[in-house]
Nucleic acid binder design. Structure first.
Lengths: 202, 202
DNA sequence: TTAAATTATGAGACATTACTCATATATTGG
DNA sequence: CCAATATATGAGTAATGTCTCATAATTTAA
Protein backbone atom coordinates (compact mmCIF):
# COMPACT_ATOMS: atom_id res chain seq x y z
CA UNK A 1 0.00 0.00 0.00
CA UNK A 2 2.35 2.74 -1.18
CA UNK A 3 1.75 5.80 0.93
CA UNK A 4 2.34 8.45 -1.70
CA UNK A 5 1.43 11.18 0.79
CA UNK A 6 4.57 13.29 0.67
CA UNK A 7 5.83 13.02 4.22
CA UNK A 8 7.96 16.10 4.23
CA UNK A 9 10.50 17.34 6.68
CA UNK A 10 9.42 15.67 9.87
CA UNK A 11 11.52 14.03 12.49
CA UNK A 12 11.56 10.27 12.33
CA UNK A 13 11.29 8.67 15.77
CA UNK A 14 14.48 6.83 16.57
CA UNK A 15 14.34 6.45 20.32
CA UNK A 16 11.84 4.24 22.12
CA UNK A 17 10.27 7.24 23.82
CA UNK A 18 9.30 8.92 20.59
CA UNK A 19 8.04 5.72 19.04
CA UNK A 20 5.75 5.36 22.01
CA UNK A 21 4.61 8.95 21.54
CA UNK A 22 3.70 8.36 17.92
CA UNK A 23 1.77 5.22 18.77
CA UNK A 24 -0.16 6.93 21.53
CA UNK A 25 -1.01 9.84 19.24
CA UNK A 26 -2.52 7.47 16.71
CA UNK A 27 -4.43 5.63 19.41
CA UNK A 28 -5.61 8.93 20.84
CA UNK A 29 -6.82 9.96 17.40
CA UNK A 30 -8.95 6.82 17.26
CA UNK A 31 -10.44 7.45 20.70
CA UNK A 32 -11.09 11.14 20.25
CA UNK A 33 -12.69 10.39 16.93
CA UNK A 34 -14.97 7.83 18.50
CA UNK A 35 -15.99 10.19 21.27
CA UNK A 36 -16.17 13.59 19.57
CA UNK A 37 -16.65 12.86 15.89
CA UNK A 38 -14.59 14.29 13.09
CA UNK A 39 -15.59 17.85 13.90
CA UNK A 40 -14.49 17.58 17.49
CA UNK A 41 -11.28 15.75 16.74
CA UNK A 42 -8.98 18.75 17.09
CA UNK A 43 -5.23 18.46 17.23
CA UNK A 44 -5.19 19.92 20.74
CA UNK A 45 -7.69 17.36 21.93
CA UNK A 46 -5.77 14.51 20.36
CA UNK A 47 -2.52 15.69 21.88
CA UNK A 48 -4.13 16.05 25.30
CA UNK A 49 -5.62 12.58 25.14
CA UNK A 50 -2.29 11.16 24.03
CA UNK A 51 -0.64 12.81 26.99
CA UNK A 52 1.73 14.89 24.88
CA UNK A 53 1.84 18.50 23.78
CA UNK A 54 0.70 19.79 20.42
CA UNK A 55 4.30 20.55 19.67
CA UNK A 56 5.22 16.91 20.03
CA UNK A 57 2.36 15.95 17.79
CA UNK A 58 3.58 18.23 15.05
CA UNK A 59 7.07 16.89 15.40
CA UNK A 60 5.93 13.66 13.79
CA UNK A 61 2.98 14.67 11.65
CA UNK A 62 2.90 17.43 9.09
CA UNK A 63 -0.78 18.04 9.56
CA UNK A 64 -3.97 16.67 10.99
CA UNK A 65 -4.85 14.52 8.03
CA UNK A 66 -1.54 12.72 8.25
CA UNK A 67 -2.52 11.51 11.69
CA UNK A 68 -5.71 10.08 10.32
CA UNK A 69 -3.87 8.54 7.43
CA UNK A 70 -1.67 6.74 9.90
CA UNK A 71 -4.74 5.57 11.78
CA UNK A 72 -6.28 4.31 8.59
CA UNK A 73 -3.12 2.45 7.73
CA UNK A 74 -3.15 0.80 11.14
CA UNK A 75 -6.79 -0.25 10.98
CA UNK A 76 -6.62 -1.39 7.39
CA UNK A 77 -3.77 -3.71 8.17
CA UNK A 78 -5.55 -5.26 11.12
CA UNK A 79 -8.73 -5.63 9.10
CA UNK A 80 -7.10 -7.45 6.22
CA UNK A 81 -5.08 -9.60 8.58
CA UNK A 82 -8.28 -10.82 10.22
CA UNK A 83 -9.81 -11.75 6.88
CA UNK A 84 -6.62 -13.42 5.74
CA UNK A 85 -6.46 -15.42 8.95
CA UNK A 86 -9.99 -16.67 8.62
CA UNK A 87 -9.36 -17.87 5.08
CA UNK A 88 -6.07 -19.65 5.52
CA UNK A 89 -7.19 -21.32 8.72
CA UNK A 90 -7.33 -25.09 9.37
CA UNK A 91 -9.20 -27.40 7.06
CA UNK A 92 -12.91 -27.24 7.73
CA UNK A 93 -16.02 -27.80 5.66
CA UNK A 94 -17.31 -25.09 3.39
CA UNK A 95 -20.17 -23.96 5.59
CA UNK A 96 -17.88 -23.44 8.56
CA UNK A 97 -15.39 -21.61 6.40
CA UNK A 98 -18.06 -19.20 5.25
CA UNK A 99 -19.15 -18.64 8.80
CA UNK A 100 -15.62 -17.83 9.90
CA UNK A 101 -15.14 -15.42 7.06
CA UNK A 102 -18.38 -13.66 7.93
CA UNK A 103 -17.48 -13.44 11.58
CA UNK A 104 -14.10 -12.01 10.79
CA UNK A 105 -15.56 -9.56 8.33
CA UNK A 106 -18.17 -8.46 10.82
CA UNK A 107 -15.89 -8.03 13.79
CA UNK A 108 -13.36 -6.13 11.76
CA UNK A 109 -15.88 -3.98 10.00
CA UNK A 110 -17.15 -2.89 13.37
CA UNK A 111 -13.64 -1.82 14.25
CA UNK A 112 -13.17 -0.02 11.01
CA UNK A 113 -16.47 1.83 11.05
CA UNK A 114 -15.03 4.93 12.63
CA UNK A 115 -12.09 4.83 10.32
CA UNK A 116 -14.25 4.58 7.25
CA UNK A 117 -16.00 7.68 8.43
CA UNK A 118 -12.71 9.49 8.71
CA UNK A 119 -11.79 8.42 5.24
CA UNK A 120 -14.95 9.93 3.90
CA UNK A 121 -13.97 13.23 5.41
CA UNK A 122 -10.48 13.19 4.00
CA UNK A 123 -9.61 15.02 0.81
CA UNK A 124 -11.39 12.96 -1.83
CA UNK A 125 -8.18 11.98 -3.58
CA UNK A 126 -6.70 10.25 -0.55
CA UNK A 127 -10.01 8.66 0.32
CA UNK A 128 -10.48 7.07 -3.05
CA UNK A 129 -6.98 5.67 -3.12
CA UNK A 130 -7.11 4.17 0.34
CA UNK A 131 -10.59 2.83 -0.09
CA UNK A 132 -9.87 1.27 -3.44
CA UNK A 133 -6.78 -0.36 -2.06
CA UNK A 134 -8.79 -2.01 0.69
CA UNK A 135 -11.42 -3.14 -1.74
CA UNK A 136 -8.94 -4.65 -4.16
CA UNK A 137 -7.24 -6.53 -1.36
CA UNK A 138 -10.48 -7.80 0.11
CA UNK A 139 -11.67 -8.78 -3.32
CA UNK A 140 -8.60 -10.82 -4.12
CA UNK A 141 -8.75 -12.53 -0.74
CA UNK A 142 -12.34 -13.59 -1.27
CA UNK A 143 -11.55 -14.73 -4.80
CA UNK A 144 -8.82 -16.96 -3.46
CA UNK A 145 -11.30 -18.34 -0.98
CA UNK A 146 -13.78 -19.11 -3.73
CA UNK A 147 -11.19 -20.75 -5.95
CA UNK A 148 -10.07 -22.97 -3.11
CA UNK A 149 -13.60 -23.91 -2.20
CA UNK A 150 -14.95 -24.42 -5.72
CA UNK A 151 -18.53 -23.22 -5.84
CA UNK A 152 -21.19 -24.48 -8.26
CA UNK A 153 -20.32 -24.24 -11.95
CA UNK A 154 -23.12 -21.84 -12.82
CA UNK A 155 -21.18 -19.17 -10.96
CA UNK A 156 -18.44 -19.04 -13.53
CA UNK A 157 -17.64 -15.39 -12.94
CA UNK A 158 -15.66 -15.70 -9.76
CA UNK A 159 -14.90 -12.01 -9.66
CA UNK A 160 -18.56 -11.09 -9.66
CA UNK A 161 -19.33 -13.76 -7.11
CA UNK A 162 -16.72 -12.26 -4.85
CA UNK A 163 -18.38 -8.88 -5.20
CA UNK A 164 -21.70 -10.32 -4.14
CA UNK A 165 -20.07 -12.04 -1.23
CA UNK A 166 -18.53 -8.80 -0.03
CA UNK A 167 -21.81 -7.01 -0.48
CA UNK A 168 -23.44 -9.49 1.85
CA UNK A 169 -20.80 -8.78 4.46
CA UNK A 170 -21.48 -5.08 4.13
CA UNK A 171 -25.16 -5.74 4.51
CA UNK A 172 -24.55 -7.69 7.66
CA UNK A 173 -22.48 -4.89 9.05
CA UNK A 174 -25.42 -2.62 8.51
CA UNK A 175 -27.70 -5.03 10.32
CA UNK A 176 -25.28 -5.26 13.19
CA UNK A 177 -25.65 -1.56 13.74
CA UNK A 178 -29.26 -2.02 14.73
CA UNK A 179 -30.18 -4.02 17.77
CA UNK A 180 -30.09 -7.69 16.85
CA UNK A 181 -28.50 -10.85 18.05
CA UNK A 182 -25.28 -11.07 16.09
CA UNK A 183 -25.17 -14.86 16.07
CA UNK A 184 -28.60 -15.01 14.56
CA UNK A 185 -27.53 -12.68 11.78
CA UNK A 186 -24.42 -14.65 11.04
CA UNK A 187 -26.48 -17.82 10.92
CA UNK A 188 -28.88 -16.38 8.43
CA UNK A 189 -26.25 -14.94 6.17
CA UNK A 190 -24.18 -18.09 6.31
CA UNK A 191 -27.21 -20.01 5.08
CA UNK A 192 -27.98 -17.47 2.43
CA UNK A 193 -24.44 -17.41 1.14
CA UNK A 194 -24.04 -21.15 1.29
CA UNK A 195 -27.12 -21.61 -0.80
CA UNK A 196 -25.91 -18.97 -3.20
CA UNK A 197 -22.49 -20.55 -3.59
CA UNK A 198 -23.30 -24.24 -3.57
CA UNK A 199 -26.85 -24.39 -4.84
CA UNK A 200 -30.22 -25.17 -3.23
CA UNK A 201 -29.34 -28.82 -2.61
CA UNK A 202 -26.88 -27.67 0.02
CA UNK B 1 -41.41 13.15 11.35
CA UNK B 2 -41.84 15.74 14.09
CA UNK B 3 -39.04 18.29 13.73
CA UNK B 4 -38.39 18.91 17.41
CA UNK B 5 -35.43 21.14 16.50
CA UNK B 6 -36.37 24.35 18.28
CA UNK B 7 -36.64 26.78 15.38
CA UNK B 8 -36.24 29.94 17.35
CA UNK B 9 -36.70 33.54 16.35
CA UNK B 10 -36.26 33.38 12.61
CA UNK B 11 -38.26 35.06 9.95
CA UNK B 12 -40.70 32.85 8.16
CA UNK B 13 -40.75 33.41 4.42
CA UNK B 14 -44.09 34.82 3.37
CA UNK B 15 -43.39 36.32 -0.01
CA UNK B 16 -42.54 34.26 -3.08
CA UNK B 17 -39.08 35.82 -3.29
CA UNK B 18 -38.02 34.59 0.11
CA UNK B 19 -39.48 31.16 -0.40
CA UNK B 20 -37.34 30.87 -3.48
CA UNK B 21 -34.34 31.98 -1.46
CA UNK B 22 -34.87 29.29 1.15
CA UNK B 23 -35.27 26.61 -1.50
CA UNK B 24 -32.11 27.67 -3.30
CA UNK B 25 -30.16 27.71 -0.05
CA UNK B 26 -31.11 24.10 0.64
CA UNK B 27 -30.28 23.09 -2.90
CA UNK B 28 -26.98 24.95 -2.67
CA UNK B 29 -26.19 23.10 0.54
CA UNK B 30 -26.63 19.81 -1.29
CA UNK B 31 -24.39 20.88 -4.15
CA UNK B 32 -21.66 22.41 -2.04
CA UNK B 33 -21.67 19.31 0.10
CA UNK B 34 -21.26 17.11 -2.93
CA UNK B 35 -18.41 19.18 -4.29
CA UNK B 36 -16.49 20.22 -1.18
CA UNK B 37 -17.39 17.70 1.49
CA UNK B 38 -18.60 18.51 4.94
CA UNK B 39 -15.42 20.34 5.85
CA UNK B 40 -15.64 22.64 2.90
CA UNK B 41 -19.36 23.27 3.21
CA UNK B 42 -19.07 26.69 4.83
CA UNK B 43 -21.98 29.02 5.24
CA UNK B 44 -20.32 31.61 3.02
CA UNK B 45 -19.83 29.07 0.27
CA UNK B 46 -23.41 27.89 0.52
CA UNK B 47 -24.72 31.43 0.40
CA UNK B 48 -22.55 32.25 -2.59
CA UNK B 49 -23.68 29.16 -4.46
CA UNK B 50 -27.29 29.97 -3.64
CA UNK B 51 -26.79 33.44 -5.04
CA UNK B 52 -27.69 35.18 -1.80
CA UNK B 53 -25.70 36.84 0.98
CA UNK B 54 -24.81 35.22 4.26
CA UNK B 55 -27.14 37.64 5.93
CA UNK B 56 -30.06 36.30 3.95
CA UNK B 57 -29.07 32.79 4.84
CA UNK B 58 -29.15 33.58 8.54
CA UNK B 59 -32.49 35.25 8.18
CA UNK B 60 -34.07 31.85 7.70
CA UNK B 61 -31.76 29.46 9.50
CA UNK B 62 -30.50 29.78 13.05
CA UNK B 63 -27.30 27.95 12.31
CA UNK B 64 -25.49 25.78 9.85
CA UNK B 65 -26.88 22.50 11.13
CA UNK B 66 -30.41 23.72 10.60
CA UNK B 67 -29.68 24.02 6.91
CA UNK B 68 -28.54 20.46 6.79
CA UNK B 69 -31.53 19.34 8.80
CA UNK B 70 -33.74 20.90 6.19
CA UNK B 71 -31.77 19.13 3.49
CA UNK B 72 -32.12 15.83 5.28
CA UNK B 73 -35.84 16.35 5.64
CA UNK B 74 -36.11 17.00 1.93
CA UNK B 75 -34.09 13.96 0.90
CA UNK B 76 -35.66 11.63 3.42
CA UNK B 77 -39.11 12.41 2.16
CA UNK B 78 -38.14 11.76 -1.43
CA UNK B 79 -36.41 8.51 -0.46
CA UNK B 80 -39.35 7.07 1.43
CA UNK B 81 -41.75 8.18 -1.26
CA UNK B 82 -39.80 6.19 -3.82
CA UNK B 83 -39.92 3.05 -1.70
CA UNK B 84 -43.58 3.53 -0.94
CA UNK B 85 -44.33 3.99 -4.62
CA UNK B 86 -42.58 0.80 -5.60
CA UNK B 87 -44.52 -1.21 -3.05
CA UNK B 88 -48.01 0.03 -3.66
CA UNK B 89 -47.61 -0.16 -7.42
CA UNK B 90 -49.75 -2.22 -9.80
CA UNK B 91 -50.29 -5.93 -9.30
CA UNK B 92 -47.31 -7.91 -10.50
CA UNK B 93 -45.77 -11.23 -9.62
CA UNK B 94 -43.52 -11.54 -6.60
CA UNK B 95 -40.23 -11.61 -8.46
CA UNK B 96 -41.03 -8.42 -10.30
CA UNK B 97 -42.16 -6.75 -7.11
CA UNK B 98 -38.85 -7.59 -5.47
CA UNK B 99 -36.98 -6.21 -8.42
CA UNK B 100 -38.88 -2.95 -8.32
CA UNK B 101 -38.26 -2.56 -4.64
CA UNK B 102 -34.56 -3.17 -5.14
CA UNK B 103 -34.35 -0.70 -7.96
CA UNK B 104 -36.12 1.95 -5.97
CA UNK B 105 -33.96 1.32 -2.93
CA UNK B 106 -30.83 1.49 -5.02
CA UNK B 107 -31.70 4.62 -6.93
CA UNK B 108 -32.77 6.42 -3.80
CA UNK B 109 -29.83 5.27 -1.74
CA UNK B 110 -27.55 6.72 -4.38
CA UNK B 111 -29.31 10.02 -3.97
CA UNK B 112 -29.10 9.90 -0.22
CA UNK B 113 -25.45 8.97 -0.01
CA UNK B 114 -24.27 12.52 0.46
CA UNK B 115 -27.04 13.24 2.89
CA UNK B 116 -26.27 10.22 4.99
CA UNK B 117 -22.76 11.53 5.25
CA UNK B 118 -24.03 14.84 6.52
CA UNK B 119 -26.15 13.12 9.08
CA UNK B 120 -23.15 11.29 10.42
CA UNK B 121 -21.46 14.61 10.99
CA UNK B 122 -24.35 16.21 12.75
CA UNK B 123 -24.47 16.38 16.55
CA UNK B 124 -25.02 12.75 17.51
CA UNK B 125 -28.42 13.38 19.07
CA UNK B 126 -29.94 14.74 15.90
CA UNK B 127 -28.25 12.09 13.78
CA UNK B 128 -29.57 9.19 15.78
CA UNK B 129 -33.10 10.50 15.77
CA UNK B 130 -33.23 11.21 12.06
CA UNK B 131 -31.52 8.01 11.11
CA UNK B 132 -33.66 5.87 13.35
CA UNK B 133 -36.76 7.49 11.96
CA UNK B 134 -35.74 6.56 8.44
CA UNK B 135 -34.96 3.02 9.47
CA UNK B 136 -38.22 2.51 11.30
CA UNK B 137 -40.14 3.81 8.32
CA UNK B 138 -38.21 1.69 5.84
CA UNK B 139 -38.62 -1.32 8.09
CA UNK B 140 -42.36 -0.98 8.37
CA UNK B 141 -42.68 -0.47 4.62
CA UNK B 142 -40.79 -3.66 3.90
CA UNK B 143 -42.79 -5.54 6.52
CA UNK B 144 -45.98 -4.47 4.82
CA UNK B 145 -44.53 -5.70 1.56
CA UNK B 146 -43.71 -9.08 3.08
CA UNK B 147 -47.11 -9.49 4.66
CA UNK B 148 -48.81 -8.71 1.39
CA UNK B 149 -46.63 -11.14 -0.52
CA UNK B 150 -46.64 -14.00 2.00
CA UNK B 151 -43.23 -15.63 2.00
CA UNK B 152 -42.50 -19.25 2.97
CA UNK B 153 -43.73 -20.30 6.42
CA UNK B 154 -40.27 -21.06 7.79
CA UNK B 155 -39.65 -17.32 7.85
CA UNK B 156 -42.09 -16.74 10.65
CA UNK B 157 -40.22 -13.74 12.02
CA UNK B 158 -41.29 -11.13 9.53
CA UNK B 159 -39.49 -8.38 11.36
CA UNK B 160 -36.19 -10.17 11.10
CA UNK B 161 -36.83 -11.04 7.50
CA UNK B 162 -37.39 -7.39 6.79
CA UNK B 163 -34.04 -6.60 8.39
CA UNK B 164 -32.31 -9.10 6.15
CA UNK B 165 -34.05 -7.67 3.14
CA UNK B 166 -32.88 -4.18 3.97
CA UNK B 167 -29.39 -5.46 4.58
CA UNK B 168 -29.33 -6.85 1.07
CA UNK B 169 -30.32 -3.47 -0.30
CA UNK B 170 -27.49 -1.87 1.62
CA UNK B 171 -25.14 -4.46 0.26
CA UNK B 172 -26.24 -3.69 -3.23
CA UNK B 173 -25.69 -0.02 -2.66
CA UNK B 174 -22.16 -0.87 -1.71
CA UNK B 175 -21.72 -2.89 -4.87
CA UNK B 176 -23.08 -0.08 -6.94
CA UNK B 177 -20.30 2.14 -5.71
CA UNK B 178 -17.74 -0.02 -7.45
CA UNK B 179 -17.70 -0.32 -11.18
CA UNK B 180 -20.32 -2.87 -12.16
CA UNK B 181 -23.29 -3.10 -14.37
CA UNK B 182 -26.19 -2.12 -12.15
CA UNK B 183 -28.71 -4.30 -13.98
CA UNK B 184 -26.55 -7.35 -13.43
CA UNK B 185 -26.38 -6.63 -9.73
CA UNK B 186 -30.09 -6.15 -9.42
CA UNK B 187 -30.62 -9.43 -11.26
CA UNK B 188 -28.39 -11.31 -8.89
CA UNK B 189 -29.86 -9.85 -5.76
CA UNK B 190 -33.39 -10.34 -6.99
CA UNK B 191 -32.60 -14.01 -7.44
CA UNK B 192 -30.91 -14.26 -4.10
CA UNK B 193 -33.77 -12.57 -2.29
CA UNK B 194 -36.42 -14.50 -4.14
CA UNK B 195 -34.82 -17.77 -3.15
CA UNK B 196 -34.50 -16.54 0.39
CA UNK B 197 -38.13 -15.48 0.61
CA UNK B 198 -39.88 -18.21 -1.33
CA UNK B 199 -37.57 -21.19 -0.98
CA UNK B 200 -35.27 -23.04 -3.39
CA UNK B 201 -38.15 -24.38 -5.50
CA UNK B 202 -38.69 -20.86 -6.81
C1' DT C 1 31.04 13.87 33.07
C1' DT C 2 29.77 16.36 29.29
C1' DA C 3 28.85 17.86 24.67
C1' DA C 4 25.94 16.66 20.92
C1' DA C 5 21.71 14.89 19.39
C1' DT C 6 17.09 13.97 20.14
C1' DT C 7 12.71 14.87 22.08
C1' DA C 8 9.17 17.71 24.61
C1' DT C 9 6.78 22.00 25.65
C1' DG C 10 2.94 25.48 25.15
C1' DA C 11 2.11 30.36 24.46
C1' DG C 12 0.79 32.69 20.67
C1' DA C 13 0.95 34.00 15.42
C1' DC C 14 -2.02 33.40 11.78
C1' DA C 15 -6.00 31.80 9.32
C1' DT C 16 -10.68 30.43 9.07
C1' DT C 17 -15.42 30.42 10.02
C1' DA C 18 -20.03 30.96 12.11
C1' DC C 19 -22.84 34.48 12.89
C1' DT C 20 -24.50 39.80 13.72
C1' DC C 21 -26.18 44.26 12.75
C1' DA C 22 -26.69 48.72 10.87
C1' DT C 23 -28.15 49.99 6.59
C1' DA C 24 -30.15 49.64 1.86
C1' DT C 25 -33.61 47.83 -1.21
C1' DA C 26 -37.93 45.74 -2.57
C1' DT C 27 -42.88 44.68 -1.98
C1' DT C 28 -47.50 45.39 -0.39
C1' DG C 29 -51.80 47.62 0.88
C1' DG C 30 -54.21 51.67 1.15
C1' DC D 1 -47.73 57.99 -4.15
C1' DC D 2 -46.69 56.85 0.55
C1' DA D 3 -46.04 54.58 4.65
C1' DA D 4 -45.35 50.09 6.66
C1' DT D 5 -43.62 45.81 6.29
C1' DA D 6 -40.64 42.28 4.48
C1' DT D 7 -36.33 41.08 2.51
C1' DA D 8 -31.33 41.64 1.19
C1' DT D 9 -26.62 43.05 2.01
C1' DG D 10 -21.67 42.25 3.46
C1' DA D 11 -18.00 44.27 6.26
C1' DG D 12 -17.00 43.26 10.81
C1' DT D 13 -16.71 40.51 15.39
C1' DA D 14 -15.77 36.85 18.34
C1' DA D 15 -14.58 32.23 18.75
C1' DT D 16 -11.99 28.42 17.50
C1' DG D 17 -8.54 25.76 15.33
C1' DT D 18 -4.02 24.66 12.94
C1' DC D 19 0.56 24.91 13.17
C1' DT D 20 5.29 27.39 14.60
C1' DC D 21 9.26 28.39 17.21
C1' DA D 22 12.22 29.64 20.85
C1' DT D 23 13.41 27.23 24.77
C1' DA D 24 13.76 23.41 28.11
C1' DA D 25 14.35 18.60 29.28
C1' DT D 26 16.04 14.06 28.26
C1' DT D 27 18.87 10.58 26.12
C1' DT D 28 23.07 8.99 23.92
C1' DA D 29 27.76 8.11 23.36
C1' DA D 30 32.57 9.16 24.22
Amino acid sequence: MGGKTAEKRRRKPSQARSRRAVASIIEAAAQVLERWGYQGATTNRIAERAGVSVGTLYQYFNNKDEIFNALIERETTSFLDAIEGSISGPEVENRTAIRRLLEAAYASEQLVLGVRQVMRNLPSQAYSEQNMAIRREMHSLVMRFLELRGAIPELDDISLTADVFIAQCEGMTYLGRISRNTDELVDILTDSLYRYLYGPKG
